[in-house]
Design a protein around this nucleic acid. Structure first.
Length: 235
DNA sequence: GAGACTATCCGTCAAGATCT
DNA sequence: AGATCTTGACGGATAGTCTC
């Protein structure tokens, strides 16, 4: 069990032991997350297909072996990378540039293709789109769509008016709220993407481990065979 | 069946990385 | 330098399994 899970488990239990009712979050997002996680959870279980299959990645990792020898040359570069917070996309894409065939983590194509760059991110629908294609929110949070079928902008996210046209404090407050909501929405999507990339990254690493283990085993066997051949016979 | 435990998901925040 | 992106950490929720 991971440290985080453990912490959460303890916390959850404390919460469950100490209170019967669940308190709403500050922003009243309880029902929001419930509604979303519910459907999203189901979809995630069924929608892992967008991630390359293990066999695919294994093949990829196998071809990566040739690039392995060049790794020594890159040690300096790698150290430099390690000193920074790693980006899954970067890591995988670097891997893929070393090794032809490694699936690159897609950049958000919608930035150039979609009419609403920030709101219609290239999220695999099989994974992240809810059954209704909508995220619903309660309280003062608006209902919005990830992929609005008809309009470029989702409901509740209106293009900001130019700052110069804002005079009243109320308008300023509205503008601030709108900006915050937009930021939260963007971050929400970014977090999803990040998690997806992380999963892909971990899968890639796992398959690589599997490949290297097999390779290691083969080499050990080969060594034993050579030993047998080369060793002087005593009888 | 109820409660404990576990795994996994999600949204949000904050801080560092990267882009413009 | 400021804006935007990325990701770790955290807290909340749900579903499945286990134990009593």
């Amino acid at each position: 069990m991971s440290k985080c899970s453990r912490k959460k488990y303890i916390k959850t239990n404390i919460r469950q032991m100490t209170m019967e009712t669940v308190e709403p979050q500050q922003d009243g997002s309880v029902t929001d997350s419930v509604a979303e996680s519910d459907s999203a959870h189901m979809q995630t279980q069924a929608g892992q297909n967008s991630i390359p299959t293990l066999a695919q990645v294994a093949t990829i990792a196998e071809t990566d072996e040739s690039a392995e020898s060049e790794g020594v040359i890159d040690s300096h570069k790698r150290r430099e990378i390690l000193s920074r917070r790693p980006s899954y996309r970067k890591i995988l894409n670097e891997l893929s540039s070393d090794v032809p065939g490694v699936p690159k983590i897609e950049e958000e194509k919608s930035e150039e293709e979609g009419p609403a760059p920030n709101l219609a991110m290239a999220v695999p629908t099989s994974i992240y789109q809810t059954s209704t294609g909508q995220y619903t929110a309660t309280g003062d949070m608006p209902t919005y769509q990830i992929r609005a079928p008809t309009t470029a902008l989702p409901q509740g996210v209106v293009m900001a008016t130019s700052p110069g046209s804002l005079h009243s404090p109320q308008q300023l407050a509205e503008e601030a709220t709108r900006k915050r909501e937009l930021r939260l929405m963007k971050n929400r999507e970014a977090a999803k993407e990040c998690r997806r990339r992380k999963k892909e990254y971990v899968k890639c690493l796992e398959s690589r481990v599997a490949v290297l283990e097999v390779q290691n085993k083969k080499l050990i066997e080969e060594l034993e065979t050579l030993k047998d051949i080369c060793s002087p016979k005593t009888d």
